[in-house]
Write a protein that binds this DNA or RNA. Structure first.
Length: 618
RNA sequence: GCCGCCGUGGCUUAGCUGGCAGAGCGGGUGACUUGUAAUCACCAGGUCGCGGGUUCAAAUCCCGCCGGCGGCUCCA
């Protein structure tokens, strides 16, 4: 049911013409002064409970605006999901009768009517209310609870002590302290342009696209390559873990009964699109598609745990304007999203533990070590008390202190979640990997499994993003490069993600053919190699290769041809002051790179092999 | 969304007490044929974010909008 409440100096209406469903009405017109006009749409599914709450809402407003006169005015245009006329009249009459302690008027249903209204225009004079079924009321209540909810903060030590945050000695855990400060006080000290924004543009990885909405980036060839490698890697890891890859739509019906209830908790965060008849919202995760798929599937206890995976390109979230920054927070982003259906809490805990380890492993292979991030656990007090040993056991995986946030009541869909958070050069924290135990959505979506005794049961569902958003992983790698600079090292990406892994620089034009031959050898070994054939000085070419963060720079001239070796500048072992140069054979270089990229996906060079043929993208 | 700062060739920027829009990098052409972080010369390239206003005259002053950055708020 939808209500539009107007506090008016007067309202007058005149009946013009009957429709098929018109109620009997003996007057021609009516005028009421100092009245609260309640424009009302009765919607499909509305019942006595809804009437009850609508009456409460009307009484509440009438009291606030200090009026004793109410006009119930049937108004179909507030909803696109109207109830049938018979039900509507019945419920409107019920509202009328239940407001009997006020002076109630009711305009007749089913007539074309003309009306004049004089809205008072004070702050409370125009209000709308949406009254739904029982579940929605709970949701609204949950939202209110959320505002009131109190977080209790602790540190879980490697010795499995849960210590109140003020009593924990952060000596040696400065990053954790920064993370905790960020979470609790939400305060940062430094103001500086984030390093990764400059890097992503200067290295021709990604850039803003002003012709799109804010928070939608364009990726140049190098950025697309890096992103694609990360996407492939995480996807492979999840499939290897046991997930079935699926693909689901990126937009959904706003009015779909299941989705609507979920959505109403988080209004105005979605992109809304108008279709021919229906309105759609863009997904912010793969939950919708996968849950709807699961709800339609026949699942038995033999199929559990059942894992589904999708890489969302894209997920959409209409984040607030002021929150968007570079690759860190976007409105269109790519999420590896895996859901695991499990039969009970024991199985959920087992999966949670394993997926925690999976996340550590995925980040480590990407190039992010446990030292690079901080762990947070968020848990309801009930779950913690009942599963203390289990929660404590999580600390064994990384053996470092964990920030714990505890709530007295559950107001999200999960009872337990962990996150790995990266703290950047500006002391901002952002979540990477996360796993949650969802105790609510199986029922909401009608996902069931058949147990061994033949009965249908609601499972639990785990949400897992093993790496977090791919763009955010890129942000993290670039911010980590800034930390390298701060430590006096040269910034670089992991070799398997470097767009060019080896650059061959001929000392002069005479050695260009030789350089190309070496490049072919490396290329045949699935190494991304390019050749600087430009008419520039050697020093200039070295400089350019260095500013591109190329891990291996191989110079070829007379000496190399003679000895059959390469003189290679190894970036990871060099500093700005001193370059580490090694003389190695092509085979040795191949072996070294293969070892560094072992187990990682490979994609060929994303730009012309000869530098003279490359465009500049900015 | 709110508050503050910023927006000048592809990039980085000078000019901002109103008076001809300048440079470096990058690009093109030519010379040089190079041994480890910028070789030299010449040439092309600008609706000064967009729209309005003040003025004889606006990149410069005023208003609105768009975009970016920082803070606040938010983050299923």
């Amino acid at each position: 049911m939808k209500l539009l409440l107007i506090h008016a100096d007067y309202m007058e209406y005149e009946v013009k013409k009957r429709t098929r469903v018109a109620e009997d009405f003996d007057k021609k017109s009516e005028r009421i002064e100092e009245v609260l006009v309640v424009f009302t749409s009765v919607e499909k599914g509305d019942d006595e409970g809804v009437v009850e709450r609508a009456v409460e809402a009307i009484k509440e407003v009438a009291e606030k605006v200090n009026t004793s006169k109410v006009l119930i005015y049937p108004y179909a245009h507030l909803s696109s999901n109207l109830a049938d006329a018979e039900t509507a009249v019945k419920l409107l009459k019920e509202i009328e009768s239940k407001l009997s302690d006020l002076e109630v008027h009711r305009a007749p249903f089913g007539w074309y009517k003309a009306f004049k209204i004089s809205c008072k225009g004070h702050p409370l004079s125009e209000l709308s209310r949406e009254i739904g079924g029982e579940e929605e009321i709970e949701v609204t209540k949950a939202l209110k609870d959320e505002e009131k909810v109190v977080s209790y903060w602790y540190i879980l030590t490697p010795e499995k002590q849960l210590i109140e945050i003020d009593k924990f000695d952060f000596t040696g855990y400065e990053k954790l302290q920064k993370f905790a400060n960020y979470e609790i006080a939400k305060r940062r000290a430094v103001d500086r342009i984030p390093p990764h924004v400059e890097f992503m543009r200067r290295l021709e990885i990604a850039d803003y696209e002003e012709a799109s909405d804010s928070g939608h980036l364009k990726y140049y060839p190098k950025g697309r390559l890096i992103k694609s490698l990360l996407e492939t890697f995480v996807t492979e890891k999840c499939i290897e873990y046991g997930a079935m890859e699926v693909e689901t739509p990126i937009m959904y019906d706003r009015a779909h009964p299941t989705l609507r209830r979920y959505l109403e908790r988080f209004p105005a965060r979605q992109y809304i699109l108008k279709g021919d008849k229906r309105e759609f919202f863009l997904r912010f995760a793969a939950c919708f598609g996968q849950f709807l798929m699961s709800a339609n599937s026949t699942i038995t206890y033999r199929n559990l745990p059942l894992r589904m995976y999708e890489l969302t390109r894209y997920s959409f979230r209409k984040e607030q304007r002021g929150e968007l920054v570079g690759l860190r927070r976007l409105r269109a982003f790519t999420m590896p999203d895996m859901h695991t259906i499990v039969k009970d809490m024991e199985e959920a805990k087992q999966e949670f533990f394993n997926q925690y380890r999976l996340s550590v492993d995925v980040l480590r292979e990407i190039g992010l070590e446990p030292d690079d991030y901080e762990v947070a656990i968020r848990v309801t007090r009930d779950f913690y008390e009942e599963n203390k040993d289990f929660v404590h056991s999580l600390v064994d995986i990384l053996k470092k202190p964990i920030l714990v946030e505890m709530w007295d009541q559950r107001f999200f869909y999960f009872v337990l979640k962990f996150e790995f958070n990266f703290v950047d050069a500006l002391d901002k924290a952002s979540a990477l990997s996360t796993v949650q135990i969802d105790v609510e959505n199986a029922e909401r979506y009608g996902i069931t499994y058949v147990d061994s005794d033949g009965s249908k049961k609601y499972p639990l569902i785990l949400h897992c993003s093993a790496s977090g958003a791919i763009e955010r992983v890129m942000y993290t790698l670039l911010e980590k490069a800034q930390f390298m600079i701060d430590k006096g090292k040269l910034p670089m990406l992991p070799v398997w993600l470097s767009p060019t892994q080896v650059r061959i620089i001929p000392v002069s034009e005479r050695f260009l053919e030789h350089a190309k031959k070496i490049a072919e050898k490396l290329e045949a070994e699935r190494i991304r190699v390019d050749v600087d054939d430009r008419d520039e000085t050697l020093a200039k070419k070295i400089r350019d290769a260095s500013t591109e963060w190329i891990p291996y720079i191989a110079v070829v001239g007379g000496r190399e041809v003679e000895r059959g070796k390469l003189t290679v500048t190894v970036r990871s072992e060099s500093t700005l002051k001193e370059q580490k140069k090694v003389e190695i054979s092509v085979e040795e270089l191949i072996k070294r790179i293969h070892e560094e990229c072992n187990g990682k996906p490979f994609k060929p060079l994303c730009l012309p092999k000869l530098l003279s043929l490359r465009p500049g993208f900015r």
